[in-house]
Simulated assay, not measured.
Amino acid sequence: MCPSNLVRIVWRNTHKGKPGWIAVILRPVIYAQLLLPDFSLILCGYLLCRHTPLNRSVWSQVESLVYYFLFPVLLFQSIVKTPLDLGATSSLIGAGLTLGLASIALAYSLPYLPGLRQHIDLREHAASAQVAFRFNSFIGLALAERLAGSQGLQLIAVLIGVCVPLFNVAAVWPMARHAGRGFLRELVRNPLIVATASGLAANLLGFSLPDWSVPTLSRIGASSIVLGLMAAGAGMQFGHLSQAKTLAVAVLSIRHFLLPLMALGLTRAFGLSAVQSTVLMAFSALPTASSAYVLAARMGYNGGYVAGLVTLSTLLGVVSLPFALGLLRW
């Protein structure tokens, strides 16, 4: 039985006079089943990198392939083929952008909060702030399809389409500002921003993909999800986390605790449908982007520390995703 169908059956049965404690016990197990395929790929990447000749030097090349080619192709294809019914998705877009802006504001404000400012290095914060609001699109696409089928995939593609440009601009700005590098130059060189912007432009202009190209592009997209998840596992590191513990706790608390709580309020404030609410809640609790440490290292920052944050965020996703979906069910 499909795990998403099992979720619906358990939920339905709890409202037919059956004991509610059954659902309380089963929900974490069901959500773990939903996440198992994705985190199994992450674990495979970790084990292959640590215990086979496919070491870090191999996976860094795989990561570059995913970041610069495979994933931009997936983003472009997903956005172009997704009907952008702004009327039907305007509430979801509004909720997603509101959640994104709130997370960026929280991340930027950390060095100025009483009790935190003396414990946070501004250079480390410039590279690490992105961890609080960026998200792992590989896991998001895979999970949305598993939770809500093709409709879930379309909705998460819409959120990716509107949020990726915002989040990438917000990730690059503090690093470019702190390092004195050209902000616009960094933006136009970012493959995710280029793919998203071109996909949105093509969609709004009515461009459609030729039928002969769809099978090839679909296979490229599928490979990007698999290799992206495995590359995220291969890049997991813990050794650098002790360098700035306060900053680590702060950005990960925003990513995995505060955002699901805010998303729950937004589902009600924007009057989202059941499927839209499910997608937004899953979106709010995703692990941070596995490419965050690539961006930090490429711009001359402490990539090892950001890689540690990405590692811990990936593991925390096992807890935060069931937490977020459980909030919606409750």
Rank of each mutant, 00 (worst) to 15 (best):
F323T: 06
V214F: 11
V319T: 06
G304S: 08
M236S: 10
V294N: 06
L266T: 01
A232R: 07
L241E: 00
S291V: 11
V294Q: 09
T216V: 15
W212G: 02
S320K: 12
A292S: 14
P210F: 09
R255D: 02
A274L: 04
Q276H: 02
T267V: 14
V318Y: 06
V294D: 05
A307L: 13
L204H: 08
F323Y: 14
V275I: 08
S320M: 10
M281S: 02
L280T: 06
F257S: 05
L286Y: 11
V294G: 03
S313E: 07
L312R: 10
Q243H: 14
A282G: 15
L264T: 03
V294A: 10
A297N: 09
A297R: 12
F207K: 00
L241W: 00
L286I: 10
L321P: 11
S291F: 04
L272W: 01
L209C: 06
I220A: 15
V318F: 09
L205G: 02
L241S: 01
V226R: 14
N302I: 05
R268N: 05
T278Q: 13
G304K: 05
V275L: 03
M236F: 08
L258E: 00
H240Q: 12
L295M: 13
F283A: 08
G271F: 04
S313H: 01
L247G: 04
L252K: 12
A248W: 14
S213N: 11
Y301M: 14
T246C: 13
R255F: 00
F270G: 02
L315Y: 01
F323C: 10
F283L: 12
